[in-house]
Structure formats: structure tokens, C-alpha cells
């Protein structure tokens, strides 16, 4: 039996879709069977971030409305044997799907796949409820900013209230230079504020923009963000991986988290 993981944040623009694309691709590179589901009905983006926008025929709402079989809506990711995207509808809205329907779908998919990753829309309304309905665990994405951390706190409360008992935090777009100057909260500061375990720190890296431009996730590449996402994937599978030293000159992170 596989695992259904929802990638969520509350606040928009913190990197949910980028995280879903990279963690999904990273898990597939580890040989896992993976399906990504874009839950942001009406504002789909996971397809472009994955570079699959030209291959969409059917979508999630078609599957739910039984206009096609789930396999027909899958877009196979090139270069992998068992890695698919289930895109969402662009011309419908969040009320086209119910939490019960989503739970039924993910319960079925986790029998076939090692991992089913859901890219949750921003907000805490219907789209969020749909995305968490069948989730076994969550990756909560935040940036080290007050607004994103406050929203992450709210999301953690809602996950608890909705029986999603396992969740881990990804601190995205961290700038070690600013942390060093005391002008940005460190991952440790964020953890002091939120009651959650840390599963990854992704540095702010221009390579993310470049990878999104081309539609090829950078997980596993030589860039710092690529390595950080790779480590998150390993931790998702249960492996213990030390945190990256994002500031080698000063040894800042190594002092906190222990050297590699």
C-alpha cells in the first residue's frame, strides 16, 4: 500500500507546485512509482512546471465525472516507467469535486502507486478540503516570512483537526546570507514558532526559476536547491539524511545541524 501525501501551505506563492514537482520527480528517480495530482482546479500549473502542458487530453474532473478512465487522464512523464501526472481542469472550479470523491480516488491510487502526491491550492476552503481528504501525511511548505509562517500554523491546526496526523515542514527560499545578518528567520526560528518536524530546507536558488522556465524539475542536480530536494525525497522514504551546509564559509548550518 502506497502513501498519499498532500503538499500544502495556506499562503500562495511559497513553492507548493515547485515542491510537488521536485519531490515527485525525485521519488520517481529513486525508482518509486509516483502519481502527481494537481488539485488547483481552475488555476492549474503543475503541468507547466513539469513541462507536460501540451499533452493534456482528460483531467481530474473528467475522471471524477466518469467521462474517462483514470488511466486515460494520466500523462506519462518521459524517461520513467511508472511516473504520471493527473492534471486538473482549467475551466472548472473547486466545487466540481468533493472530499469524498477525492478520498475514493486516492484510496484506489495508493493501491497502484508507492506515492500519490497532491498539489494543494492556496487557501483553506473547498480546494484544501478536497486535497487533504484522502491524505495520509502532509508536507507543509513555508518561507521564512511572518505571513507564510502564520498561515502554516493555521494549516497545521487544520491538518490536526482533520485527522492528518503526520506532517513535516519544508522551509523554502531560505537566504543564508540574510539569516547570517539577522534579517531573516532561520529554519530554527521557524521551528521554534511552529509545532512540527522539519523535513527540509531549500535555499533560494535562481536555478529554480531556470528549471521552471524549461519545465524540467532540478531535483538531483548539482545546484543547492537540487540537492536539498533530493534529500527531502530520501527523508520522505524514511532515510535519515543530514541537513545541507548552506553556508559553507561560515559553517552556519553545520553548527546547527551537524556536519555531513
Amino acid at each position: 500500500m502506497g502513501e498519499v501525501i498532500v503538499v500544502t501551505s495556506g499562503k500562495g506563492g511559497v513553492g507548493k507546485t515547485t515542491t510537488t514537482a521536485n519531490v515527485g520527480t525525485g521519488l520517481a528517480k529513486l525508482g518509486k512509482s509516483v502519481v502527481l495530482i494537481d488539485m488547483d482546479i481552475g488555476l492549474r500549473n503543475l503541468d507547466v512546471v513539469m513541462g507536460l502542458e501540451n499533452r493534456i487530453v482528460y483531467n481530474l474532473v473528467d475522471v471524477i465525472e466518469q467521462k474517462c478512465k483514470v488511466n486515460q487522464a494520466f500523462i506519462k512523464v518521459k524517461g520513467f516507467n511508472n511516473f504520471y501526472l493527473l492534471p486538473c481542469a482549467q475551466t472548472r472550479d473547486k466545487t466540481s469535486v468533493t472530499p469524498e470523491q477525492m478520498k475514493t480516488l486516492t484510496d484506489m491510487l495508493k493501491k497502484e502507486f508507492d506515492y500519490c502526491l497532491l498539489d494543494c491550492p492556496a487557501g483553506i476552503e473547498q480546494g484544501f478540503k478536497n486535497a487533504i481528504a484522502g491524505a495520509d501525511r502532509a508536507l507543509v511548505v513555508t518561507t521564512p516570512e511572518v505571513s507564510a509562517v502564520r498561515d502554516a500554523d493555521r494549516i497545521i491546526g487544520l491538518l490536526d483537526a482533520n485527522e492528518v496526523k503526520r506532517y513535516d515542514l519544508i522551509v523554502n527560499r531560505l537566504r543564508p546570507d540574510m539569516v547570517k545578518r539577522g534579517e531573516m528567520m532561520s529554519a530554527e526560528d521557524v521551528l521554534d514558532v511552529l509545532s512540527i518536524d522539519l523535513i527540509g530546507i531549500v535555499p533560494d536558488d535562481e536555478n529554480i526559476v531556470i528549471s521552471t522556465n524549461t519545465g524540467v524539475p532540478l531535483v538531483g542536480s548539482d545546484s543547492l536547491a537540487g540537492k536539498a530536494f533530493q534529500n527531502i525525497c530520501l527523508r520522505v522514504t524514511g532515510e535519515e539524511v543530514p541537513f545541507l551546509d548552506l553556508n559553507k564559509k561560515q559553517g552556519f548550518f553545520s553548527r546547527i545541524f551537524g556536519k555531513k
Partner: peptide, 15 residues
């Protein structure tokens, strides 16, 4: 007195 500690204190208070 840097902005990061102010961010953290404000967050802890509001949360």
C-alpha cells in the same frame, strides 16, 4: 534588534 528576531517575537505573540 535585527528584523529576524522581531519577526519571531511578533509571530510567537500572534500565534
Amino acid at each position: 534588534n535585527k528584523s529576524a528576531s522581531s519577526a519571531k517575537n511578533r509571530l510567537q505573540f500572534v500565534l
